[in-house]
């Protein structure tokens, strides 16, 4: 962590320290409380759900019941499939395009980059209906094709992120490879991809999470409950079993925990990625 921005160093008075810690701890409790409540509710016996105290007895019936009513493994399978396909599609297509925008000097590339940037401003609602009509015309409604095929045509935000990253990598290695007679595609594959690895990890992680969390697109395109994703499944489960709070919390816990584990394992990639997005 850089020291430059820290407001006061040596003369950091004990009173100020106390205030800072006090506020931080208070806010931490507020931010953590929903999670505690989530887990506590999921472990309560049914009779105690509506009592305000901690459970007298910790039970896992909510998990066993909830996960029978809610076909978790099937939805997990569906969701993971979409995640993997989209990660592959986005990583390949966005990195190829970013290479073309950052490393090859050609006429029109800045115009194209400008257009790609501009599309990030476009509310998805504007293209929602025609895309539905297009996919309907193709006979893709109800399948995973509308949820995966667009990933293979580059994602504006990740193209931007990777392009910015590429601009910071010196071209010496590429030039050397060029003198050795490598084609642009060889340079992309052999030289640039290894250098881009940290940025690609960020892209893969964000794409994975974006797909895991996506609700709107599965809601529009998936009708058969065998093909539900976890997010869509949980939303539908909630509308059906709205008052079975213990089971709802158990299912939610099971859905939240993998994401948290993923976050703890990849925290550095995460923070780096968000910081990149805020870069001016």
């Amino acid at each position: 962590m850089s020291e430059t921005g820290q407001s006061s160093r040596a003369r950091f008075s004990p009173i100020r320290k106390l205030i800072v810690y006090g506020v931080l701890v208070a806010l931490s409790i507020i931010f953590a409380a929903p999670f505690v409540w989530l887990v506590v509710t999921s472990l309560k016996p049914e009779r105690e759900i509506f009592s305000t105290s901690l459970p007298h007895r910790v039970v896992i019936t909510n998990y066993t019941k909830g996960l029978t009513l809610f076909p978790f493994l099937r939805y997990l399978d569906n969701t993971l499939f979409l995640c993997v396909v989209n990660v592959i599609g986005v990583v390949i297509s966005s990195s190829v395009v970013a290479y073309g925008l950052a490393r090859i000097p050609w006429r029109g590339r800045d115009v194209l980059f400008g257009i790609i940037l501009a599309t990030m401003m476009l509310p998805p609602q504007v293209t929602m209906v025609p895309l539905f009509a297009l996919f309907k015309w193709l006979g893709w409604i109800g399948s995973y094709l509308p949820l995966t095929v667009p990933a293979f045509f580059g994602n504006a935000f990740f193209i931007f992120l990777l392009r910015q990253f590429l601009m910071t990598i010196p071209e010496d290695l590429s030039d050397a490879a060029r003198l050795d007679g490598c084609s642009e595609f060889d340079i992309y594959r052999r030289v640039v991809i290894p250098l881009m690895r940290p940025a690609l990890a960020t892209v893969a992680l964000f794409t994975f999470l974006g797909t895991w969390n996506d609700f709107l697109n599965p809601l529009i395109y998936i009708f058969d409950d065998r093909y539900y994703t976890l997010s869509l499944g949980l939303a539908m489960f909630t509308s059906q079993y709205g008052s079975y709070w213990g089971q709802l919390m158990a299912v939610s816990t099971v859905m939240v925990v993998p994401v948290m584990i993923l976050f703890f394992l990849t925290q550095k990639t995460f923070i780096q990625g968000i910081t990149l997005t805020g870069m001016k």
């Binding site: 395009v97 090859i104 293209t127 209906v129």
Partner: peptide, 28 residues
């Protein structure tokens, strides 16, 4: 040569822009 390879590398985005953005934008 640069123009050709530049267009080839960015072709996924160009096709994507036309099919998934430009056309739906006009259609909507």
């Amino acid at each position: 040569q640069h123009l050709i390879s530049g267009l080839l590398f960015t072709s996924p985005a160009i096709i994507g822009l036309l099919v998934f953005t430009a056309y739906p934008l006009g259609a909507s």
